[in-house]
C-alpha cells in the first residue's frame, strides 16, 4: 500500500510556534499514483475553486493595486475594504497603515460581528502574483499549478502550505471559522487538502473555459 499519511502539522507544533494547535488540524493523505482519474481530478478542482473563490480567501488575494476587498453576503455590495485601506507593495501596510493596526495577531476566537478578524499570523494580503479575486476557475487553476505564481509549490507543497498555516492558526484555518456574520468557506480544511491532493494526483487538470 503506497498511501502515505503525514501529520505535518504535528511536526510544526513540535518545532516552534507558541500559538500552534495541540493536534493537527488536517493531515496529508496522498492518493496512490494513478488512482485519480482526470474526471475525478476536475471534480476535485471544482471543489477547490469553490474554496479559493470564497470571500474568506479571495478578498485578500487581490491585485497590484494592493487593496483588499469586502465581498460576500455579510458585506452586501462588493467594494474595496473600507477606511481607504491600501496594503502597499509590502502587502501588509508597512508603507501606509499596517493591517495589524486593527487585525491584531491573536489565536483567540473571532466572535464579534463586523470586528476586524484576527488570526495567529500577522494579517496581510497574499503575494501579488497570487491575485485571483474575480478570476475564473480556469484562470485560478492555471495559476495554482504554475510554480511561478504559486510560491514554487508542487502538489505536496500546496498541501503542506495549507496544513502548516492551520498549525499556526493562520488564514487558511480561519476561513472555516471566521466568526461574526461572515460566510465560511465550503467543505472543510481536511476536504480541501484532500481535494488538492486528488487534483494533483490526477495531474492537476484544469477546466478549459
Amino acid at each position: 500500500m503506497n498511501r502515505i499519511a503525514i501529520a505535518v502539522a504535528s511536526i510544526w507544533v513540535a518545532l516552534a510556534h507558541p500559538l500552534a494547535a495541540e493536534e493537527a488540524e488536517a493531515v496529508i493523505n496522498v492518493p496512490p499514483e494513478g488512482s485519480v482519474s482526470t474526471e475525478d481530478g476536475l471534480a476535485a478542482w471544482e471543489r477547490v475553486y469553490e474554496v479559493v473563490s470564497n470571500p474568506r480567501c479571495a478578498n485578500c488575494h487581490t491585485g497590484p493595486d494592493n487593496r483588499p476587498m469586502w465581498s460576500g453576503p455579510s458585506y452586501g455590495k462588493t467594494r474595496p475594504h473600507g477606511m481607504n485601506i491600501n496594503a502597499g507593495e509590502s502587502r501588509m501596510g508597512a508603507e501606509t497603515l499596517p493591517c495589524a493596526t486593527c487585525h491584531i495577531t491573536s489565536d483567540a476566537p473571532n466572535t464579534v460581528p463586523h470586528a476586524a478578524p484576527h488570526v495567529g499570523l500577522d494579517w496581510q494580503l497574499a503575494p501579488v502574483e497570487f491575485e485571483w479575486f474575480g478570476k475564473s476557475s480556469a484562470e485560478i487553476c492555471a495559476q495554482l499549478k504554475d510554480p511561478e505564481r504559486n510560491g514554487g509549490r508542487d502538489m505536496m507543497g500546496l498541501a503542506q502550505h495549507l496544513v502548516e498555516d492551520a498549525a499556526h492558526k493562520g488564514f487558511v484555518l480561519w476561513g472555516w471559522s471566521p466568526g461574526g456574520t461572515r460566510v465560511r468557506a465550503p467543505y472543510s480544511l481536511q476536504q480541501h487538502v484532500d481535494d488538492i491532493l486528488a487534483w494533483g494526483t490526477a495531474g492537476q487538470p484544469c477546466p478549459t473555459n
Binding site: C102, I104, S106, A115, H118
Partner: peptide
C-alpha cells in the same frame, strides 16, 4: 465602536499604532 471601525481607542504598542479595543490583554 469596539470593533476597529473608528480609531478612537488608538494607542501605541512598541511604537506602533493599534486599536486597543481589538488587542486582548492575553495577546
Amino acid at each position: 465602536c469596539g470593533i476597529a471601525q473608528c480609531g478612537a481607542c488608538t494607542v501605541h504598542i512598541d511604537g506602533m499604532a493599534v486599536r486597543s479595543c481589538q488587542t486582548l490583554a492575553g495577546s
